[in-house]
Amino acid sequence: MLERTPLKDRTEVTFVLPADTPPGPVSVVGDFNDWQPGVHQLVPRKDGNRAVTVALPAASTHSFRYLAAGDYWFNDENAEAQDGANSRLHT
């Protein structure tokens, strides 16, 4: 799930996944972090889900995927679009 908070010059996008699906550490990787695993790792929230917030430029489009333990790559089923193997989001 993607949560957005529009601000004056950027949009804060929060990437949210259930606490244990998939199990183990998960990070969001995309063109906004040069596809570097571990830069934006999801952490537990009080509601039981895991999340990480990334500030992105306003009115921009980005490709991303999730990377879980065991080199398991997967997309966000709630993303606005798919771009080949990647999910897409618009701020």
Results as ranks from 00 to 15, higher is better:
Y66K: 00
G30T: 04
F32P: 01
W35P: 11
T21Y: 02
S60V: 08
W35T: 12
F15H: 01
D31P: 05
H40G: 11
V43L: 14
L56V: 14
A81G: 02
P23S: 14
E3N: 11
S60Q: 08
L42S: 04
A19K: 04
Q36F: 07
D20M: 07
D9E: 11
V26A: 02
A79L: 00
K46Q: 10
S60W: 07
D34C: 04
Q82E: 10
G38C: 04
S63T: 12
R45N: 15
N75P: 00
M1S: 11
P22S: 06
D34Y: 09
P6Q: 08
T14G: 14
A79G: 00
L17R: 10
V39Y: 05
W35C: 12
P22G: 04
D9V: 09
T53A: 08
A51W: 04
Q36A: 12
D31Y: 01
R65Y: 05
L89V: 09
L89I: 14
V13P: 00
L17G: 03
F15G: 06
Y66V: 11
V54T: 05
F64T: 08
M1R: 06
N75S: 12
G70F: 11
K46R: 10
V43D: 10
G30Y: 08
L7D: 11
K46N: 10
Q36C: 08
M1L: 09
T5D: 13
D83E: 12
D31L: 09
P25H: 04
P57K: 14
A85P: 01
P25E: 13
S27A: 14
S87I: 04
H62E: 00
P22I: 01
P44A: 08
F15R: 06
T61I: 12
E80F: 07
A79D: 05
K46E: 13
Y66C: 06
V16A: 07
D20L: 01
F32Q: 01
W73T: 14
G84E: 03
D34Q: 14
G24H: 02
D47E: 01
G24S: 07
K8F: 13
A58E: 13
T61A: 14
F74P: 11
T61D: 07
L2A: 00
E80D: 11
F74Y: 14
D83Y: 13
D71S: 14
G84L: 01
T14C: 12
M1A: 11
A81S: 09
N49R: 14
G38Q: 04
H40D: 15
V13I: 10
A19V: 01
D76W: 01
T14A: 10
P57W: 06
T53K: 00
H90K: 13
R65H: 07
D71A: 15
E77N: 10
D71F: 02
W73M: 13
F74V: 12
F74G: 03
S27Q: 06
S63F: 06
R10I: 09
S27I: 11
P22C: 01
H90E: 11
D20W: 04
H62W: 09
G24R: 03
R45T: 12
F32A: 05
T11V: 15
D76E: 07
S27M: 07
R45P: 07
A85T: 03
D9K: 10
F74E: 03
D9F: 11
G70C: 10
A19Q: 05
L56I: 13
D71H: 08
K8E: 15
